[in-house]
Amino acid sequence: MSVLVVAEHDNKDLKAATRVALAAAKAIGGDVDVLVAGSGSAAVAAAASKIACVRKVLHADNGAYANQLAENIAALVADIGKGYSHVVATHTTGGRNYLPRVAALLDVAQISDIVAVVDAQTFQRPIYAGNAIATVQSSDSIKVISVRGTAYDPVPAEGGAAAVEAVGVAHDTGLSAFVGEEIVKSARPELTAANIIISGGRGMGSADNFKLLEGVADKLSAAIGASRAAVDAGFAPNDMQVGQTGKIVAPDLYIAVGISGAIQHLAGMKDSKVIVAINKDEDAPIFQVADYGLVADLFKAVPELEALL
């Protein structure tokens, strides 16, 4: 048995989600190799080689892989992956984009967004916005799996010295082209990596009012999130969305402000260690999952909270 883990990176840094996928790969068992496909991505391959559980790093460095275009990456991953029993990736927007394409090229099913490995064929995954957990078993010769970013603790970044092997083959399908990217630059931690998150919902009332959360976020070094309702209303950009169709998070502390607690939102944050809800409606469903609930007007409570931190 051998597992190929596809690295998530931006040609500079190896993303922590990769180390979560590696933890799942370890749970599957067998030899674990990492594929780094990028351009000018030697630092990523070097970072991957330092991870203790990695047997070897396959490094495909070519302009065709520079922007992680799904057509080119999938062709490469399918080509290399056919020599493995398992192909594992992150369930980020990156993995979600190319991995089903890999599975179809290999003519096998994909098992998406797993939260636990039961054995090498059997996995658990949430369905219906996390309202049910399915245990599924694959009979395919190659198991193609994406791993939820909160499924496992990431394996340590250091402790290994795996060999880096260059992969020469370039899959340039020419089907798509990269035009540009707007990555939000923020001094705050990323939502999926933050220890503390403060999120606002429809109750925030406006995009301007969302700034109220910044003072608390600054004091706690927290990331700022939003419910789908707040994104829909134009209060916050979509990359801040926490929930079934946004990001899945599990920080140590999640503070939900003016969020009613629709099941789609709960799906994205209910694995947080401690949940705080601040809402003026005492019947809001968010209080059913909150460890600490405060029935209060957020426009009074949030500035007060900021002052006390």
Partner: peptide
């Protein structure tokens, strides 16, 4: 090719407590 062996409800998260003031909240946290 994928068989669903079983479907279970997720682990329930019990409701916690209500705090009365922001001071109490910060103290508890």
């Amino acid at each position: 090719t994928v068989k669903v062996l079983k479907v279970e409800p997720p682990a329930e998260r019990g409701a916690g407590i209500k705090v009365k003031t922001v001071e109490e909240l910060v103290e508890k946290l």
